[in-house]
């Protein structure tokens, strides 16, 4: 396959960016999208040009490090995958592919296609945990948990923190990310203990960091590589509102 790539290049957070057009040739359809970028970068290095910076790590769809807005979609034109799992067979020979970084006020660009998602860490630090110290905990089987609850908790816990929800949301909202954590813990008896505190603290931090509000479009769910349902956002709303009403 021969392809034309329009890639956003930006030297650093402060510099203005622009699209630069590149050509790549003889790409096998079995190549992954990031391998295609590796090939481009190797060519650029041989030409003495700066390679394109993009975040990636595990390349099997679980670490959440890769991002990229490809031809108008977060993680590209395929469902329930991350960019590293996208393969070139999803494109046609001769296609022009536009590659942009995540765009959101809370995710500033660091360089080229890499953005700063540390806001997610800050939200989780505000309350995305159960306050237990190491040791001194009861036996794992001492609290039976209905299978359906454990499964639903796991559905939400599948979040990889990639930020596709924020990147896709027209409001730059992190509600799906926050909801996934709040909902996952709220479905477990261990997590219920500080459920109210958690929901309030995490939402307050999310608002403080400049994420937008949820308008229930469901775009986040459509682009989430783990298919996390916005039903978890309803649970977050419930948790948050009932906690606030008690204050």
């Amino acid at each position: 396959m021969n392809l034309t790539l329009k890639i956003w290049r930006q030297k650093n957070a402060k510099a203005p960016g622009k699209f630069v057009t590149y050509k790549v040739e003889n790409i096998s359809p079995d190549t992954s999208f990031l391998e295609m970028l590796d090939i481009l970068n190797n060519d650029l290095i041989h030409k003495g040009e700066d390679p394109v910076v993009f975040d990636h790590d595990c390349r099997e769809g679980i670490c959440g490090m890769c991002s990229l807005h490809i031809n108008g979609f977060a993680h590209g034109p395929d469902t329930e995958i991350t960019t590293c799992q996208l393969h070139m067979r999803k494109f046609k020979d001769g296609d022009t592919i536009t590659i942009e970084p995540w765009r959101s006020h809370a995710f500033p660009v660091i360089k080229d296609l890499a953005v700063d998602r540390s806001a997610f860490d800050k939200i989780l630090q505000a309350g995305g945990f159960i306050s237990v110290n190491t040791g001194g905990v009861p036996d794992a089987n001492s609290i039976p948990i209905p299978k359906a609850d454990a499964d639903e908790s796991m559905d939400a816990a599948a979040c990889i923190g990639c930020g596709a929800c924020v990147a896709t949301c027209k409001n730059g909202s992190a509600m799906l990310f926050v909801a996934a954590r709040v909902s996952s813990l709220a479905k477990l008896p261990q997590g219920r203990v500080e459920g109210a505190r958690r929901a309030k603290a995490m939402v307050a931090k999310m608002d403080e960091l400049g994420f937008g509000a949820c308008t229930n479009t469901g775009a986040c769910e459509a682009q989430c590589p783990k298919g996390i349902s916005i039903a978890h956002i309803a649970r977050l709303n419930r948790e948050f509102l009932s906690a606030k009403l008690k204050d």
């Binding site: 108008g72 536009t98 942009e100 959101s104 409001n171 730059g172 400049g210 994420f211 937008g212």
Partner: peptide, 16 residues
């Protein structure tokens, strides 16, 4: 919400 979206918009964005 527009502020949260940031000043830089996507050049290409498609309907999910």
């Amino acid at each position: 919400n527009r502020q949260a979206r940031g000043n830089q918009r996507y050049a290409v964005s498609k309907h999910e």
